[in-house]
């Protein structure tokens, strides 16, 4: 049973690490600010979920698990808020989001 838990936890940690790394690559590859923010939002949402879930499985039902849950909740609440503040500040400063008003091929 312990072995199974270890494997699941290891899987979560590894996929979390892979997603975080892909987000980092995306933040470098994307052409403009808003598309970069999409890549960064991978590392801000799925990364913490998977990695903290993986560490929580290692911790079991203990006090550190509760603290980890609090950290995860806090990251998931503040991450989008910070992104939104960044987007609106950039928009106010005149950084135009590229792309059309309606999605292409939608009409």
């Amino acid at each position: 049973m312990d072995g199974l838990l270890d494997i699941v936890s290891w899987l979560l940690l590894t996929t979390g690490g892979v997603f975080v790394f892909i987000g980092g690559v995306g933040a470098l590859r994307m052409p403009d600010l808003y598309t970069r923010m999409h890549a960064a939002s991978i590392t801000d949402s799925i990364g913490p979920i998977l990695i903290i879930a993986g560490v929580m499985l290692q911790a079991g039902v203990t006090l550190p698990s509760v603290k980890l849950a609090a950290i995860l909740l806090f990251l998931l609440l503040t991450g989008p808020t910070a992104s939104n503040a960044l987007a609106s500040a950039a928009l106010l400063a005149g950084t135009k989001p590229g792309g059309s008003k309606t999605p292409a091929g939608e009409d």
Partner: peptide, 9 residues
């Protein structure tokens, strides 16, 4: 915003 691929401006 939390969902990758969409971002509230």
């Amino acid at each position: 915003t939390l969902t990758p691929g969409t971002l509230t401006l």
